[in-house]
Design a binder for these strands. Structure first.
Lengths: 165, 165
DNA sequence: GCATATCGTTGCTGACGGCAACCAAATCCG
DNA sequence: CGGATTTGGTTGCCGTCAGCAACGATATGC
């Protein structure tokens, strides 16, 4: 599986140091994103929880879908999803309708009110972030996205990862 | 606050799209990292918790330091740090010594055993990751770290962020 | 020497996900 | 057809984790 690169290069001190830097930043990122998502969530609805916000926004984008689909996408236990969804329904942000194709399933979609709030917030947020990133060209941003994607793939589970790379 | 860049460029569709990509990847990253860190933590010590692993490895690299420094670096409540540290000491991975310069503070450092285990695991891990990242040059990796750092700064709290940028 | 800030600990709470047991509907198969 | 198995979802329980607040102890400033 190893590439045609001498292992001495692979484990060079520079690489190790750089990888450690990435780890630290990822750690900070995780905690910071949690906070930011929390703010966004509250902007959509005062008692909207951070994790629920992500689910809500995904339902908004990927149309009506089942809870089990959410569980797959977010790699989160279906029990947890079930609770998040219930929470969102209680807040009037999600709506359930029976799946015509499967009596066990229900389809989830955002309510008009939720869609409106999401749009507003998303507009404000990207304006803010865009300004904050100031002179960062779009190319650099998508390079970051690309690097993250690659890094993510490298982190994939060792054993059972799809060869969809 | 806005830079000398026309706002039309700031909110260009490319930027918005790129930023959204970054968000998606960050979401995946968060969940995936949680798993990976958990594995690594267990490799160092069976009952080492994921969050503690990051702290341990930072102490390993940045020599003896105070709990408050950890709180700053990781942007985590000092109470939480205190508990993580206690956990690590219980496991015999961290050691406390009074700070000669400040009677209130204590300096933390890794025990020889922890250093040994960390080295082993880190060697295995970076071998794996290095292989997985294949032909990614060290420069690109540190560029990723740099981009992340910058992105992190952009996410900083709106109101009270240091102008240390 | 008293007020105040800093270092660290602890208790409480809430958010969150993994796990397992469970119900109901669907599907498989003899 | 009818029982076994699978799949969608809910719920209870528990472990991990961080924020907040209150506290004791030490250091520092006026």
């Amino acid at each position: 599986m190893s590439a045609a690169v001498p292992s001495s290069t692979l484990a060079s001190p520079e690489r190790v140091a750089a990888l450690h830097e990435v780890e630290v930043e990822v750690g900070v990122l995780i905690r910071r994103v949690r906070r930011v998502i929390g703010e966004r969530a509250r902007a959509v609805h005062p008692s909207l929880l951070p994790a629920s916000y992500l689910i809500l926004s995904h339902v908004r984008e990927r149309g009506p879908l089942r809870a089990s689909a959410l569980s797959l996408v977010f790699e989160i236990d279906k029990g947890a999803i079930s609770r998040q969804v219930q929470h969102l329904i209680d807040l009037g942000l999600l709506a359930r309708e029976p799946d015509p194709e499967d009596g066990r399933a229900t389809l989830l979609s955002v309510t008009p009110a939720a869609a409106r709030r999401l749009d507003e917030v998303s507009r404000e947020r990207s304006a803010l972030l865009a300004e904050r990133l100031g002179d960062w060209p779009a190319d650099d941003i998508s390079m970051l996205a690309g690097s993250l994607r690659r890094y993510n793939r490298a982190l994939e589970d060792d054993g059972d990862r799809d060869p969809r790379c």
